[in-house]
Each structure stands twice: as structure tokens, then as C-alpha cells.
């Protein structure tokens, strides 16, 4: 029992081991279901289960056909295109409006700050089904139900709270004398924003943007209600696929999405560290 401090009594050691054991089980519960999909996506047969050939590690049990299908099927490729277009457009709206608002909210002169903040983040705390139903009614009235614009505007509304929250958090440590310095050197407010403020808060803006992007990229309830087949996104296709014809193509898509989320997670962590360094926060 080398890794226990020598002063621990036997019951304490047993307790520590049990505690670690419970934690390992919970972490296993968290992570295992995500990765169980990966080997199954190489299944040679159209099942969601491990075949005897796969368990025996025979080459005949594995195949990349589901990935081929994902990358060649025009239906899936349309979904990829829609997902990217909708997510990029809604992120652009969310980031520009959200950053502007965060700049205003961080000024000490801002009137009724907590009330306005509450209003702005409410799309995040109202259950999605309610927002989706409301947006469905509203956009059908405007004739935008079943249009890209309707889905993009809905997703932008759902994404802005994340931008507001992350950028406001980045602005907490912002030194306003830098702006005065810029002004004294002859920069007008716009130039000062792009040359001084933006580089400083960029990590916050990007991570807010990533939040907004993933919110839209992963969102399906609003797409189901406000969109139609022409606005089908990757989650939309997965949802209808899981309800109707279960094909391992979904597992191949899921594996690709897992890779994307790992990439996102890593870039967010790097951004967070960079942001702390820029603002001079030390560990």
C-alpha cells in the first residue's frame, strides 16, 4: 500500500479504496457509452451489435462501408452542408450581437444591468421544447417555417446567451485605461476596439462562438419544428434515422461527431489558458 500516507488507519484505507472504486465506476459510466460506438461503426453487417467475427478480431468482421455511405450519400451530404451553413450563419449573428451587448453590459454606466442580463440569457434557461413551439408558431405566421432563415434566426437566438456570458466574463478583468491610452494616442473608438479591445477579449469571443456553434450544430428540436426536409441537419437525419430505418451509418456519423467534439474540447481548453495568460491571471 505504498500510495497511502503511513498515518492512515486500516478502515480509512478501505474507505479510500472504495471511494476511488466508486469514482472509477462513475467515470466509466460517463465515458464508456461514448466510445462503445466507435468499434461498432466498423461493423461489416448492418447491426448495432458486436458480431462473433468482430469479437474474434477477424478482418472479415470489419468494414468501412458505413463511412463510405456517409461520405457519398447525397442525402447525408446535404445534411452536412445544411448543418454547416446554419451553424456558421447563426454563430455569426450570435457572436456579433452578443459581443456588442457584452461590451455595453460591462460598462459601469449600464442602466438596469441585471434585468437586461436576465432577459438576454433567458433563451438558455427556458426549456427547448417551449422555445421550439413558440418559434414554430411565430415563423409559420411569418411564412418562414421551413426556410433556412427561420432556422438560422432561431438558432442565433438560442446561441447568444453563451456569447454574452463568456465575453462578459472575459471583460471582468479588462483594464479600461488601455482604451484611454489608445484615445490619447489618437485612435477613434472603432480603431481602439479593433486594435486594443478585440485582441484582448478574443479568446472569450471565440469560445463564446464555439458554444454558439455547437448549440446550433447539435440542436434538433428547433430544426424539427421550424425546419422541414430541406433544412435537414446531421442531428435531424440521425433522429429520423433512429426512429425509422436503423442503419450503422448513424454510428459512423456519430464517430465523426465524437472526433469533432474532442477537437472542440481541446481548442476551448487552449483558448482558456491563452485568455488567462493575456489577462495576466496566474495559477
Amino acid at each position: 500500500m505504498a500510495f497511502f500516507p503511513p498515518y492512515l488507519s486500516l478502515p480509512e484505507r478501505i474507505w479510500h479504496l472504495t471511494f476511488r472504486g466508486i469514482c472509477v465506476l462513475v467515470l466509466f459510466f460517463l465515458v464508456f457509452p461514448i466510445f462503445v460506438i466507435v468499434p461498432l461503426s466498423f461493423n461489416a453487417l448492418p447491426y448495432f451489435t458486436f458480431t462473433p467475427e468482430m469479437l474474434a478480431f477477424k478482418a472479415s468482421g470489419y468494414s468501412t462501408q458505413w463511412y463510405r455511405e456517409f461520405f457519398t450519400d447525397p442525402n447525408w451530404q446535404g445534411a452536412v452542408r445544411n448543418s454547416v451553413i446554419i451553424a456558421l450563419a447563426s454563430t455569426l449573428i450570435a457572436v456579433s450581437l452578443g459581443t456588442l451587448a457584452a461590451l455595453g453590459l460591462s460598462r459601469k454606466e449600464m442602466p438596469a444591468r441585471s434585468l437586461i442580463m436576465g432577459l438576454l440569457i433567458s433563451p438558455m434557461i427556458v426549456p427547448l421544447i417551449i422555445s421550439a413551439v413558440g418559434m414554430f408558431f411565430f415563423y409559420s405566421r411569418l411564412g418562414l417555417q421551413g426556410s433556412h432563415i427561420g432556422v438560422i434566426l432561431s438558432h442565433a437566438a438560442l446561441g447568444t446567451p453563451f456569447v454574452v456570458i463568456t465575453v462578459t466574463a472575459t471583460l471582468v478583468g479588462f483594464d479600461t485605461t488601455l482604451l484611454r491610452a489608445a484615445a490619447s494616442l489618437g485612435a477613434n473608438p472603432t480603431l481602439a476596439f479593433f486594435r486594443v479591445t478585440l485582441p484582448m477579449i478574443l479568446p472569450g469571443v471565440i469560445s463564446g462562438g464555439l458554444f454558439a456553434f455547437i448549440t446550433s450544430f447539435d440542436e434538433v428540436v428547433v430544426v424539427l419544428f421550424v425546419g422541414s426536409f430541406r433544412q435537414r441537419t446531421i442531428p435531424w437525419k440521425m433522429f429520423s434515422g433512429l426512429r425509422e430505418n436503423i442503419s450503422p451509418t448513424i454510428l459512423a456519423v456519430a464517430t465523426c461527431l465524437i472526433l469533432i467534439s474532442i477537437a472542440l474540447l481541446v481548442s476551448l481548453e487552449l483558448l482558456r489558458r491563452r485568455g488567462e495568460k493575456l489577462r495576466g491571471i496566474k495559477h
Binding site: V220, M238, L257
Partner: peptide
């Protein structure tokens, strides 16, 4: 950070 539908598929 993993898609909700991926996790539902897993289950």
C-alpha cells in the same frame, strides 16, 4: 461536448 444524439444512440 458530445452531440446529444450520439449519446442517445450509444444507449
Amino acid at each position: 461536448w458530445t452531440s446529444l444524439l450520439v449519446r442517445t444512440t450509444s444507449w
